[in-house]
Design a protein around this nucleic acid. Structure first.
Lengths: 337, 337
DNA sequence: TCGACTCATGTAGACGTCTACATGGCTGGT
DNA sequence: ACCAGCCATGTAGACGTCTACATGAGTCGA
């Protein structure tokens, strides 16, 4: 943060320079640029020539200064290096872009403190809206956003009584949906593999929902790292009596599946494996993976739309619940006797 | 009719409002904020109180206006929904962030026209640097960047004679590396599966390098979509005489691998499969996937570092070549017989 | 007690663009 | 030939923050 050298602003031409060359005032140049029909043909041509001669490029910051708009939205995500978030951002960016907004991305690494810090950074960069993942956030983040009067939207999580508007799915329902699929197949002893509970309210509420389920079935919970290795490791420590593994992420499920292939365990004949996410690879593995399809792309699109509409018209942002569905594929079946 | 509007315009307090409440001028407030030791203790306290009372939040755009800096860098990528780009952006964001810069992301969908359009958008948002994927770009993009005097850096691709600085790996070398691994194992008929050639100079140069290879071996080229389905489809149309499949992307390789598992073809006993990328899943599949490890994370870090250094000190950005390496795992072996 | 000096603060732009209003020349209808 | 009205353009801020310089009050040493 030392060297604040201003070599940056090497004499870039301004509309005043253009005006000087064209023999008009800056106001006329501005008009020629923004409302060409209010400027005479001859003048317009001289201005066009002057723009080329001077190499004029508009200064976006000055524009933003007078319009009070930056047409920029910020998104805070735990990581970019995970399909679910990049898929979300991909859809988000697409919809923001068609509405004329740009996307600034900041990575929190799942750390609430870093989240606050990054949020401040985004605000100090002039974003007009802030998108976060999940519902539980540092007080300071919410306070900052409120102070700046910029809208805050939560994603990945829908809960009717949230104090900030949220566009997402109900994690509890989705988890129950998954469990019910396995239960309907006749499984009664099910291993539940999930990533770290800490600082992840999505995982937390999925687990909570399962624990609240009436108990004709027994769940064996296993927390591991949220990656392929975690899935593999879960299989290595599998309680012998389970007939199915419910992984609360497709990455975990695939890690488990690969390990089972290695061990020569037949899926689903000897053991059912179920995922959560519906990652791109899930419909191609062998066997293909039964999973919960989360409305990630739709979530990105809807979030962007809600924000843009709010920024354009002032409409308040309303929470939206999107539906998850079970995608039945080959990796689950009734337990063998 | 004295207008003493304490809270004006968009209702956001300015430094002047703060000054009015604290009974000082805007200059003093500015100093209290930026050089606290040049303001008397008493005044500082009154200003702090006034800031809270007015709910003052600094206006980033005005700051950018006077400093001429936005501390923002833009990146153009074909998609976010692909591990390789999100991994790159993840590393890029991390390093930019530690240098105090923010990252604006724009998606081109591999379309050169859209790329130009998005580049303009980024420039009109005030980014101080522009990062693109690959070396071949619409003339207009390069011209725009030059006119705006903002630095342009290419990634994913290193070529000594490039006219724009590039931080990346040599795709030709990497492709040859892969082929040499298979050739060293004794393969002579190799299927090469790659994604669309059009608008993707990385794929194009990998294929070109293979085609230029001296010919004790025969390559059978197959272009398919750059996803799991593409890998699967390639297996379905496999020339019977090949003993190995070289996929120019791990996604393709995994698609192929899964299909082969389905067909009951033993990898690598009956057929070797080699990937390209070293995606996270590759070391967990069964068999684990031999692949080319591309320096994606390092590329993100180095790119960010080069840009930041340039913006901070004016050092010109120099091209950097990063090395790819072969990662030998289980999916390749000498051909049987 | 006076001048030199320091310190805290105010004043007046500047940054680049936009826009409400002013100006002055021209047209055309009567 | 006169005035209304219009057209093309200029003038003068405004946006919010920063900073070089000016100002005035207080301090200190001789």
């Amino acid at each position: 943060m030392e060297s604040k050298t201003n070599f940056r602003r090497k004499g870039r031409a301004t509309i005043i320079d253009v005006g000087r060359v064209a023999g008009v005032s800056d106001a006329t140049v501005s008009r020629a640029l923004n409302k060409p029909d209010t400027v005479s043909e001859a003048t317009r041509q001289r201005i066009d020539a002057a723009i080329i001669e001077t190499g004029y490029v508009p200064n976006p910051v000055a524009k933003a200064m007078v319009s009070g708009r930056t047409y920029t939205v910020g998104a805070l995500v735990p990581t970019l290096d995970h399909a679910i978030f990049s898929k979300f951002l991909n859809a988000l960016e697409a919809e923001l872009s068609t509405n004329g907004y740009g996307l600034v991305v900041a990575v929190t690494k799942g750390d609430p403190l870093r989240e606050v810090e990054k949020a401040k950074k985004l605000l100090s960069m002039g974003v007009e809206g802030l998108i976060v993942s999940g519902l539980s956030h540092n007080e300071e983040l919410v306070a900052q956003a409120r102070r700046s009067t910029i809208p805050l939207v939560a994603t990945s999580y829908f809960q009717p009584d949230s104090h900030i508007p949220a566009v997402g799915y109900d994690n509890e329902t989705a988890a129950v949906l998954a469990a019910e699929h396995l239960i309907a197949l006749g499984h009664e002893k099910i291993a539940v593999v999930h990533g770290p509970i800490r600082d992840n309210d999505r995982t937390r509420s999925r687990v909570r929902a399962l624990k609240a389920l009436p108990q004709p079935v027994t769940f064996f919970y296993h927390e591991s790292s949220l990656d392929y290795a975690g899935g593999r490791e879960a299989v290595e420590n599998l309680p012998p009596e389970v007939t199915a593994i419910l992984c609360l992420s497709d990455v975990l499920a695939m890690g488990a599946l690969f390990k089972l292939q290695d061990l020569g365990v037949k899926v689903p004949d000897q053991l059912s494996v179920m995922g959560f996410d519906n990652m791109a690879a899930s419909e191609f593995t062998s066997p293909t993976l039964t999973t919960i399809k989360l409305p990630i792309t739709e979530m990105g699109t809807r979030t962007a739309r809600a924000i843009c509409e709010h920024l354009n018209t002032g409409t308040p942002i309303e929470s939206e619940e999107l539906q998850s569905t079970v995608v039945v594929r080959q990796s689950t079946a009734s337990p063998s006797r």
